[in-house]
Design a protein around this nucleic acid. Sequence first.
DNA 1: TTCCATGCAAAGGGTTTGCACTCTC
DNA 2: GAGAGTGCAAACCCTTTGCATGGAA
Lengths: 153, 153
Amino acid sequence: MVEEFPGPLDSAALTALLRRHDIGVTRQRIAVAQVLFERRQHLCAEAVLARARARNARVSRATVYNTLKLFVDHGLLSEVIVDPSRIFFDTEIRPHYHVFDASTGKLADIPAEGIEVKGLPPLPAGTLIDRVDIVIRTRPAPREAGPGAVAGA
Amino acid sequence: MVEEFPGPLDSAALTALLRRHDIGVTRQRIAVAQVLFERRQHLCAEAVLARARARNARVSRATVYNTLKLFVDHGLLSEVIVDPSRIFFDTEIRPHYHVFDASTGKLADIPAEGIEVKGLPPLPAGTLIDRVDIVIRTRPAPREAGPGAVAGA
DNA sequence: TTCCATGCAAAGGGTTTGCACTCTC
DNA sequence: GAGAGTGCAAACCCTTTGCATGGAA
């Protein structure tokens, strides 16, 4: 069901990608997709707008926001909610988790493969699981290995 | 190290609670604490402001935001980042996870006890773990048990 | 008295909205 | 040509800021 990351694509391939996901094709959506699927990455809406315009795409802020939501709804993108100040859009749509460093704003993916969560309690009746998010919140280590936290390998 | 939830407390007990956490005591901080620790709950800043004022506390918005941040920094409260539109403050500070229903805005706690996450990869060197957040994102089930998601018990 | 804390109102920043215009099909 | 999509700018909402006043010790 879930596809591989599309990778850098030309206009024709992006058109096909949108059609395959039942998304109407427009110049702006192609431009946004071009920015996004150039490589695996995490971008916020404002960054997508800036990059699209840096490529001379004629696109408005409202359209970028509309398009990102559309892509999420149609399964081309996933939203990552880790930073209270903005939403990240992640080109990785296969199951995975995140490492987030609030002090640097850096967000990284961890494949879900090999990770197991045991002991989750049953949900209330009448409830479906959309997804399970795991976020490892980190911060840079001080000079030496300090107390109060677990050091990375 | 981590205390039990303080529970509903009178002014004197709240004063002691603040002092124990190295927080200067003021009328406004007592008022905010009174709202928060009345019971285990998840409140956003605006809700705390509204409830404090509903109790005739003379408190400004800025002070509520300052106080909540202070309480978090001193370990009286935890922040929950699950909703892009606001930060929740959780009176539960022992390790635990969350269930969030975006369609209703309902947030619930799950004790960490009994939950095990296996297979997390090593972190980059020079990185410390602050904490690991797990959020189970749910939505209300349609009429009958539908396909495409895992039903609750 | 001294400094930290508070209040006020405005600024800030990401996101959404309303409506007229434009383009895709 | 019809309807979906777009652009613009302002509105929105939570949160933060600057600075003068007020209160705790």
